[in-house]
Amino acid sequence: MNLRQQRNRSLLVKLLVSTVLMFGFGFLLVPLYDVFCDITGLNGKLQNTGALTQAYPINQQRQVRVQFLAVNNEAMPWTLRPARSEISVHPGEMTQTAFMAVNPTNRPMVAQAIPSVAPSAAAKYLHKVNCFCFEQQPLGAGEEQEMPLVFMVDDELPDYIQTITLSYTLFDITPELRPANDVVNSATRSAL
């Protein structure tokens, strides 16, 4: 093995290693994206769930409107409705409301609600002490369930934001029986 071959080989190894590293970097972009959204509060990704870690003063002078939305994803047959579509709250005040979920089908199903906050800048000031975010909710055929939500708006919320919208999208995650078009898809897939 002469010098040039050695140099070619060591360069080859280095370049292959960088290829593997860049492949890994592609996957690293996934958590980086989430971290970036968390830090900046962009994308309305959910933050501040669980019990409060500190006391927040109640500001009686200020009122913030909080609106609730519920949307079904594609073939989801459930109905999800907020008990009240809009509540006016004082910052710092702990408020309880609920969403009503109904499974109108004749089979048991599991759903999962993905929350999103708009405007995204408000995401970090909306504390959700109790919410059903990302939780799997099974319901039997024709069953109905109240899904409680306890939240508080931080007084640090920038002044220009007077209305916060909390929106839930309900997804069907029933394991064995997936939505109709998915079943067709996997059937054609296995046929190939």
Binding site: L15, S18, T19, V20, L21, M22, F23, G24, F25, G26, F27, L29, V30
Partner: peptide, 14 residues
């Protein structure tokens, strides 16, 4: 190419 083709491979793998 070495910097970004692996990222393409990553995204199609995802």
């Amino acid at each position: 190419l070495i910097a970004v083709m692996p990222v393409l491979a990553g995204v199609v793998t995802m």
